[in-house]
């Protein structure tokens, strides 16, 4: 239990997907302009990451590892994730329309989100079991949410600032992201301090 809590906190804080591992930068820059879109996108990412891990783990263990086909991981995982996102979209539309209304619009964006493929590949690289993989994925998604929500706040402040012409738009956004990222560097060692 302690080990799982440690994996979760590490994924949220010290190994934050966006601010420390640079995964999922496109939605981070594209969808973080407003707080509610940031929250919606993050919820969709958590959802897809959890489902993707739950589906790819048995496929990897039962099929790829069993028959020595590990070299097919990249191609199998991306196809499974793409198909899964489509499937989830259809199922939600039909059976849980309220959830579809909240998350549906973000789902197509997530197919080619490197954070989702990244978390699945990292789970394999780290040799995590099923429970650890799930915790790592949900933690990674939660970390994604923390970064997105914090940054949406920063960006709303940034809107009203007088910025030199060359820095307008993405350059200043990246520099702001750098400052947010500095704050996350402060978490280094915190998780080991609590659980270690």
């Amino acid at each position: 239990m302690k080990a799982l809590a440690m994996i979760f906190m590490t994924a949220v804080l010290t190994e934050n997907f966006i601010l420390c591992k640079f995964l999922g930068i496109c939605p981070f820059l594209g969808v973080s302009k407003k707080l509610n879109t940031a929250v919606g996108m993050s919820l969709a990412v958590i959802f897809v990451m959890a489902i993707a891990t739950a589906v790819t783990y048995p496929i990897n263990q039962g099929l790829l590892v069993k028959y020595n086909l590990e070299y097919l991981q990249t191609i199998v995982f991306i196809l499974v994730i793409a198909a899964l996102v489509q499937f989830v979209e259809i199922v939600l539309k039909k059976f849980i329309p309220s959830l579809y209304q909240a998350l549906g619009i973000y789902l197509p964006l997530i197919t080619t989100n490197c954070a989702v493929l990244g978390v699945v590949l990292l789970n394999v690289d780290n040799g995590y079991g099923f429970a650890q993989s799930m915790v790592n994925s949900v933690g990674g998604g939660a970390g994604f949410m923390v970064a997105m929500v914090m940054f949406a706040g920063v960006r709303e402040k940034l809107e009203g600032c007088d910025i030199p012409k060359a820095l307008k738009g993405l350059p200043i956004t990246l520099i702001a992201a750098s400052l947010v990222s500095v704050s996350f560097q402060g978490f280094t060692g915190v998780v080991e301090g609590i659980f270690g």
């Binding site: 060359a166 820095l167 993405l170 200043i172 990246l174 520099i175 750098s178």
Partner: peptide, 20 residues
């Protein structure tokens, strides 16, 4: 710090501003 994550964002922002 430039080899860490914050440095990455910062250098990218500055280089992009120069390119603009």
């Amino acid at each position: 710090i430039l080899t860490l994550a914050p440095g990455g964002f910062f250098v990218f922002g500055v280089v992009m501003a120069l390119a603009n």
